[in-house]
């Protein structure tokens, strides 16, 4: 009986924290279809009428069309650059294929802890000097450079699972490198590629400090920055703000839920190195 009670108590605690996590998001959903007067009267009340005007307002004034395009461009650049660089480097490091591999490992550990604020000010001046500000792809490459050390470590652990005999046997049997990579290596490290891709992709999509600093031109801003610019003019239009928030939340949560296994595994494995 007591164990049963304990079980109920545990579930109550877990549910309480789930509610804490979801409550602000539920408020967004609830108020995105309400008129402003209705929200000001009571943000907790259910909508009496559904209005979808808020979504049109948010999409137009937040410039979400160009914003989404720029965000996709930025995130795509980051993911492609990180996957390419970290896969190649992770492969070399896992096989200890260069003599200086321990030095590289130490370097990457240190690079991982370098804070953004330590390099962002001179980097801004350099990028401004070569006239590359207001370019989402440039920001994508910068964010990629920040994520490369962690992604390389993750890819390395996946390559460590590839038995060395496999590569040697393939060489002996005259399998071409391309065939070996495509048919043997790729299937083994695919979960790693997805994990790195989705974690790094979320990092790039959500990044604020660098994007806000390097992308000042409204036509080059990411969708989150477009939403932020709405805050000044629409801070009294709560319905439009909530609709804008919902437009930004929905795709991210959809991708997260679809790929949750990889995100959770990525987070859980990344820390349990020691």
């Amino acid at each position: 009986m007591t164990t049963r009670l304990k079980g109920i108590g545990a579930h109550a605690v877990l549910l309480f924290f789930a509610a804490t996590a979801l409550f602000p998001l539920a408020l967004v959903l609830l108020n995105s279809v309400k008129t402003n007067t209705e929200i000001v009267r009571n943000p907790l009340a259910l909508p009496s009428t559904f209005t979808f005007e808020n979504f049109v307002t948010a999409w137009t004034y937040g410039e979400f069309g160009t914003g989404f395009l720029n965000s996709v461009l930025l995130t795509g650049t980051t993911v492609v650059v990180v996957l390419t660089c970290s896969t190649l480097a992770g492969y070399v490091l896992a096989g200890k294929k260069i003599r200086s591999w321990p030095v590289v490992m130490v370097y990457l550990t240190m690079a991982m802890t370098v804070p953004v604020q330590l390099f962002v000010f001179p980097l801004y001046s350099i990028v401004a000097a070569v006239d590359l500000l207001d370019n989402p792809m440039v920001v994508g490459v910068i964010i990629a450079a920040i994520n490369i050390p962690f992604a390389t470590f993750l890819m390395r652990t996946f390559f460590l699972n590839v038995p060395r005999e496999l590569e040697e046997a393939a060489q002996v049997d005259g399998v071409s490198t391309a065939q070996f990579v495509w048919h043997v290596l790729l299937p083994i490290v695919r979960p790693g590629l997805i994990t790195v891709g989705v974690v790094v992709g979320l990092n790039a999509w959500n990044e604020f400090l660098i994007s806000a600093t390097f992308l000042q031109d409204p036509d080059q801003q990411t969708v989150t920055l477009g939403f932020l610019s709405m805050n000044g003019t629409f801070s009294t239009e709560l319905g439009a703000m909530m609709a804008g928030a919902l437009i930004l939340i929905a795709p991210v949560l959809a991708i997260f839920v679809a790929l949750q296994r990889y995100v959770v595994d990525g987070i859980a494995s990344g820390s349990v190195k020691g």
Binding site: F17, A18, A21, L22, P24, L25, L202, W205, N206, F208, T224, L225, F227, L228, A245, L248, I249, V252, L253, F256, Q260, V263, V264, I267
Partner: peptide
């Protein structure tokens, strides 16, 4: 529990 974590700080 991870839902707020995967959303942008701006949002």
């Amino acid at each position: 529990y991870l839902m707020p974590y995967v959303l942008s700080p701006v949002v």
